[in-house]
Amino acid sequence: MTSHGEPIDFGAAIRALTSARSVTVVCHVQPDADTLGSGLALALVLHRRGVPVCVSFAEPAQVPVSMRSLPGLRHVVAPEQVPHEVDVLVAVDCGSAGRLGALRDRMAGAATTIVIDHHRSNTEFGMINVVDAAAESTTSVVARLFDAWGEQIDREIAHCLYAGLVTDTGSFRWVRPGTHELAERLLGTGIDGAGIARTLMDTHPFGWLPMLSRVLGTARLEPSVHGGVGLAYAVVRREDQVDVRSEEVESVIDIVRTTAEAGVAAVFKQSRVVENRWTVSLRSRDSGPGADDGVDVAGVATTLGGGGHRFAAGYTAHGEADEVIAALLTALG
Rank of each mutant, 00 (worst) to 15 (best):
F146Y: 08
P177V: 09
R310Y: 07
V324F: 12
T18G: 13
A317R: 13
V92M: 12
L282E: 01
H47R: 15
E248Q: 06
S140D: 03
V175H: 02
G50W: 00
G50M: 04
E6A: 15
T302S: 15
H204T: 04
K269V: 08
D132K: 12
S19N: 10
Q30A: 11
A102C: 04
P205K: 10
D147M: 02
V115E: 05
V25Q: 08
N129C: 12
P60E: 13
E151Y: 02
G150C: 09
E181F: 05
D286N: 14
H204V: 05
V53N: 07
D34R: 14
S281T: 03
G98S: 02
L73M: 10
F10R: 06
V235Q: 04
L89E: 00
A12V: 00
A108H: 11
D34I: 10
H309D: 03
G333N: 11
I196D: 07
L282D: 01
E222L: 12
S281R: 11
D168T: 13
V249L: 05
W174S: 13
V141S: 10
S96G: 12
D322M: 02
V267I: 10
S56I: 14
V90S: 09
E6T: 09
A262P: 04
S251P: 00
R272W: 01
T18W: 09
R272N: 01
H180G: 02
G333H: 12
F57R: 08
W278Q: 01
R285V: 02
A108G: 01
Q62T: 15
